[in-house]
């Protein structure tokens, strides 16, 4: 325990490093997965190709990817950018399937009604499909956030500093408290980011706030309410 009290600064610094590594991939994977997931949901051929390739991408173990990726994209293996790109790839791999499934879960009748009252397919996507798929997307993004925070620690073994550095350092110097502090800090950081996403979800999707049954059966669409 004394190790933790005398190294608070170190833990805080590594936490900040960790945030820099894990927040961009979470945001980027959502932004990139939206068009890919929408494309996968639209045509049968694109669905097979896109979901098949993200499935394979997800099967690639993290450490080998961290080593192979710099050779492909030309970054340095020890640069945070390399890790950010790799973590974004995993996030996209997880999120694309969620986006495709979430959009597919929107009732076809609702979409036809939207077309009937004059939505173009572009505005129907943004104002009807996306908000209705929102709770599913949020659930997926929360998984991405937790797994990204956990995966980012692996970068420590190739020399990218994060909370994972507490594991490698603690292991080499035989300090158990340092490893435990690292695990606790990683879990806490994951929970904090998860909480932020839940809050954002409540702000952006106020109609899910009232009752949990509404989330499962979003009959009243936000677009319908504002019109």
């Amino acid at each position: 325990m004394t190790w933790i009290w005398s190294n608070g600064d170190l833990i805080w610094d590594r936490t900040l490093d960790h945030l820099v590594l894990s927040v961009p991939p979470i945001l980027l994977s959502f932004l990139l997965a939206l068009p890919l997931g929408a494309l996968a949901n639209r045509y049968r051929a694109s669905r097979g190709v896109i979901l098949g390739s993200v499935g394979l991408l997800y099967a690639i173990p993290s450490l080998p990817l961290f080593i192979v990726l710099p050779v492909i994209v030309g970054t340095s293996a020890r640069s945070p950018l390399n890790l950010i790109i790799a973590l974004t790839l995993y996030g996209v791999a997880l999120m694309v399937r969620v986006v495709a499934d979430g959009l597919a879960s929107v009732d076809r009748d609702v979409r036809q009604s939207a077309a009937g009252v004059g939505f173009s397919s572009w505005s129907e996507f943004w104002q009807v499909e996306l908000p209705l798929a929102g709770p599913v997307l949020l659930a997926g993004l929360r998984v991405v956030a937790v797994s990204t925070v956990s995966l980012a620690t692996v970068g420590a073994v190739i020399g990218v500093q994060s909370l994972g550095s507490l594991f490698t350092d603690g292991f080499q110097r035989g300090i158990q408290a340092e490893i435990i502090a690292g695990i606790v800090a990683t879990v806490v950081l994951a929970l904090v980011l998860d909480g932020v996403l839940v809050l954002l979800g409540r702000l952006l999707m106020p109609w899910t706030r009232k009752s949990s049954s509404r989330v499962l059966l979003p009959v009243v669409t936000p677009a319908a309410v504002t019109r």
Partner: peptide, 9 residues
């Protein structure tokens, strides 16, 4: 949420 590297070490 538990990092695998942490558990291993």
């Amino acid at each position: 949420a538990i990092p695998t590297l942490g558990l291993l070490t």
